[in-house]
C-alpha cells in the first residue's frame, strides 16, 4: 500500500478524493472544512492494530504525529493529515468520530489562537483598568470592540465545552472509545479549562476598563455642567453689579 501524497494546506486540489462510499480499501479523502487529508486503511479483524509504516510516514511528512492504538483501531494525527486503520465494518462510525474530534480540535485551536492574539492588546489596555484620562478618550471605541470580541469568544467556548468534557459513553462503542481517547490525548478538557481562565483574566481587565471609561465619561459630562453653573453665576453676578451701578447713579 502506497498512499498518494498530498499537500493539503497549500494545494488541496491535489489530494485525491475517495471513491464513492468506499472505506474498505486504502484511500485518501480531503475534508475541506478541516483542511485535513484523511487516509483510511482497512484492517482484518484478526490483525494487530498497527498502522503500516508508509501510512505513518505519509502523516509525519507534515509534522510530528500523535499515534493511538485502541481495541483494533490505529490512528496517526498530524497538522493537515491523519491516517486511520480500522476494520471495514466499523470504519464509518470511527471515521465520523475522528472528524468530529477534528472539528472540535479546530474550534479549540482557533479559540486558543484568538485569545493568544489578544494578550498584546490586553497589556496595552491594562493601565486603563486603573486610570482613564482625557487623552484616552479616543481609545474607548477600541475597548468596546475588544470587549464585544471577548464576549463572542466566551460564547463560542461555552458552546464548545460540553462536547469536550462529556462523560464517556457506556456501554462503549469503538467509535466512542476512539473519540474519548483522542480527546484525552489532545487534553481537550484541560485546554478548555485553561482557555476559560485566560478569558476570565481578559474579562476582568476589560470589565474594569469599561468601568473606568464610564466614570471618565460621567465626570466629563458633569464638568460641562459645572462650567455652565459657573457661567450662570458669573452672568448673575454681572447683572447684579450692573443693577447696583444703575441704582447708585439714580
Amino acid at each position: 500500500m502506497t498512499p498518494q501524497t498530498a499537500a493539503p494546506r497549500t494545494a488541496p486540489a491535489t489530494v485525491p478524493l475517495p471513491a464513492e462510499g468506499t472505506c474498505g480499501a486504502a484511500n485518501v479523502e480531503w475534508i475541506s472544512a478541516l483542511e485535513l487529508a484523511l487516509l483510511v486503511v482497512s484492517a482484518r479483524p484478526d490483525e494487530a492494530a498497527t498502522l503500516p509504516a508508509e501510512a505513518l510516514a505519509w502523516v509525519e511528512a507534515t509534522g510530528p504525529a500523535q499515534t493511538i492504538a485502541i481495541h483494533g483501531a490505529a490512528i496517526a494525527w498530524a497538522p493537515g493529515r491523519a491516517a486511520l486503520l480500522v476494520e471495514p465494518t466499523r470504519c464509518e462510525a470511527v471515521r465520523a468520530a475522528l472528524i468530529e474530534f477534528g472539528m472540535h480540535d479546530r474550534d479549540l485551536r482557533e479559540l486558543e489562537a484568538e485569545v493568544a492574539a489578544g494578550w498584546a492588546d490586553l497589556e496595552s489596555d491594562a493601565p486603563l483598568a486603573f486610570d482613564f484620562r482625557d487623552r484616552d478618550a479616543e481609545r474607548r471605541a477600541g475597548l468596546g470592540e475588544r470587549f464585544r470580541r471577548l464576549v463572542a469568544l466566551r460564547a463560542r467556548l461555552v458552546r464548545l465545552v460540553p462536547h469536550l468534557d462529556r462523560p464517556p459513553l457506556h456501554p462503549p462503542t469503538l467509535a466512542s472509545q476512539v473519540g474519548e481517547r483522542l480527546r484525552e490525548r489532545a487534553r481537550m478538557a484541560e485546554r478548555a479549562g485553561h482557555l476559560g481562565m485566560q478569558l476570565e483574566v481578559h474579562e476582568r481587565v476589560y470589565d474594569l476598563c469599561g468601568q473606568r471609561a464610564s466614570e471618565w465619561s460621567l465626570a466629563h459630562r458633569s464638568r460641562g455642567l459645572e462650567w455652565a453653573v459657573v457661567v450662570l453665576l458669573a452672568v448673575e453676578t454681572a447683572l447684579i453689579l450692573v443693577d447696583l451701578l444703575a441704582s447708585r447713579g439714580s
Binding site: 481495541h71 465494518t89 466499523r90 462510525a93 456501554p171 462503549p172 462503542t173 469503538l174 472509545q177
Partner: peptide, 16 residues
Amino acid sequence: SALVMGEHVLSNLDDV
C-alpha cells in the same frame, strides 16, 4: 473495558 471470552477480546459493543 476489555473482556476476554474464549479467544475473543470484547472491548466494546461492536465487539460484543
